[in-house]
Design a protein around this nucleic acid. Structure first.
Lengths: 338, 338
DNA sequence: CCTGGCACTCTGTGTGTCCGAGTGCCAGCC
DNA sequence: GGCTGGCACTCGGACACACAGAGTGCCAGG
């Protein structure tokens, strides 16, 4: 196990490197943090930390920079989450409260996160699978064409076309609409399948085909997780990435355009609390030089989606985590209220 | 007026510079394009072109690069639009035909444009103001709360909450729904206001407040142009921008995140055909080193929205314009079919 | 176990030189 | 009058080199 002082040295290295973006040497360390020991001692500690793989030298006779493993230890053991100040919290709340609809909530959240962390923000739309049905609407657009509109408790609206196997009268449609809503309104998505299972039986034989078609489209919509949308913002912050610009930034931009990748990224974070994935811990190769801080958020106690930021591994972890957590909390509140 | 040969020289300079990204000198020009004259002659022509402001030298004793004015002349007079090849056209069509809904159409269009042009693609969602109403749905969510859902002919769905001044019964709601739809379904947005003007009069006094509230929300939704959304993609292509990377790319990324800026950008292009804005012709400062190629598209003959690409002023204009035009045409087809 | 000292190793920077590409101009030619 | 070849000039990029500065590892002594 590493001695207490060595951990302190590691912490100091991470902090300085994050601040200066430059490899940090033993002398500078002793000057800026009063460790109470000489540079020579620190050098010994550094050598030990390097042996353990927590820090590395870009080249001989340069200072040290933390490795992914070093950041990991820093995040897990050496640093907490820096809480937002009261004025900051108030600002967050004010900014989010101005939102007029779900799109706006998400858009504002992205902006806010990007601004607070000065990094790339990613916000997933509240997921369908965990929310509840507010209302299902059926519209007859043509004799054999029905439009299905699903409205969720988070204010999200999904619409689908249904081609009917047989013409479907307005009366039947109204009947189906009423029966459907009385069964599923207010219920969780996961409960819907068994609640509507026997619904076709209540209809005349000639209508059952259409009813089944509508129901299966509804169920499809409910489980269609890959339809999950997300919004990103703050990509301009990528320019603050580092010196070796184009090579690093390119794969990141590419990854950010792949919704699938991002959804997987957020989805992977199983931890109910905050998840930090550092450098190579990210499965996607293009993100190997980035860290992802993500957390679930939701209306009420339960998480319905994730949000987070993507930034260089050399990031201010405590501050970023604090901002992410605070934003998630307030977005949850806003969603619960609306 | 410039002689024919000088125009040829300008065209050659633009083509070479776009290809190599390096200032082009007189000797290289005569070698690669058989102009039938010697380098010395070309130098004289270059001097003339420089006097007129069509080309410039980065420094003395370097080759020339086109100025914004030079590109402008090139686009207006010297180059046409390069049509897509038949296989390319087929590929576009196939790719777009796989789309399942409006979001998907737009998403695919963005991807396609970004891939074809290897630049940043911007696609505006079909605008509300020019399209027609397919259906208006009203749902009663609480005694004094109605949700208004507007479905357009392009498949777009907008929803709004309406707070009613007085409780509103299901019967009245059904009545309003029926009357509303019989009047506005299939009509253009711009016609709606006068079509519903006298609608409140058909209702009991106690319901008129609510009817008015619903109507005014509907009208708001119809004219709310700033709610126009758009989708962008291919930002990874920004990395191919040039050498002086971060300085140029940063403002571009920032501009791209400002929907307002982009909408204005597309909106400014008044030309019914294709519009090309080169460098400083763009009002937004951050885009002064980019060119924007945009065009309207729409279901049926009429343009309902715009799409385009943003790239370095040093871009392949004929090819880009060809791709943009072709994509716009096919998207229009797809929208008309669905 | 810490410390001061010392020799060593790099990188980044600045200087000087050189080469080549490209220019502008001029005199001559068609 | 316009095109051409020739020539002197300029400037940026590449290369070599020296040098200062920061940082290291190691060792002997407290």
């Amino acid at each position: 196990m590493l001695s207490e002082r060595r951990l302190q040295v590691l912490r100091a290295i991470v902090q300085d490197y994050v601040g200066t973006e430059e490899p940090v040497g033993s002398k500078a360390l002793t000057e800026r943090h009063n460790l109470g020991v000489s540079p020579a001692t620190v050098r010994n500690d550094m050598a030990a930390l390097e042996d353990e793989g927590f820090i590395a030298q870009p080249h001989t006779s340069a200072g040290r920079i933390p490795t992914d493993k070093g950041y990991r230890l820093f995040v897990d053991k050496l640093a907490g989450v820096k809480p937002m100040s009261a004025p900051e919290r108030r600002a967050i709340q004010n900014f989010l409260e101005g939102a007029v609809d779900l799109d706006d909530v998400v858009a504002r959240t992205v902006r806010l996160l990007a601004q607070l962390t000065r990094q790339v923000a990613v916000v997933q739309y509240p997921s369908l699978t965990r929310s509840t049905v507010r209302h299902v609407e059926l519209l007859s657009l043509a004799p054999a064409r029905v439009m299905l509109v699903l409205i969720t408790d988070t204010g999200r609206v999904e619409q689908r076309m249904v081609d009917c196997p047989a013409p479907f009268g307005e009366a039947s449609l109204a009947d189906l609409r009423a029966r459907l809503n009385s069964r599923v309104a207010g219920r969780r998505f996961t409960d819907v399948p068994r609640l509507v299972e026997d619904l076709p039986e209540a209809f005349d034989v000639e209508d059952r085909g259409t009813v089944s078609a509508v129901l299966s489209t509804l169920l499809e919509t409910l489980v269609e997780e890959n339809e999950e949308r997300l919004m990103i913002g703050g990509t301009a912050n990528l320019t603050r990435f580092g010196h070796d610009f184009p090579l690093v930034i390119r794969p990141v931009l590419e990854a950010l355009e792949e919704q699938v990748v991002l959804l997987k990224l957020l989805g992977e974070a199983k931890d109910p609390g905050m998840t930090v994935r550092i450098g190579h811990e990210n499965a996607h190769e293009g993100l190997n030089s980035t860290s992802v801080v993500s957390v679930g958020y939701g209306s009420g106690g339960e998480a319905v989606a994730k949000l987070g930021v993507v930034g260089p591994t050399r990031m201010d972890y405590p501050g970023t985590m604090g901002a992410v957590r605070a934003v998630a909390r307030y977005v949850g509140q806003i969603l619960a209220e609306s």
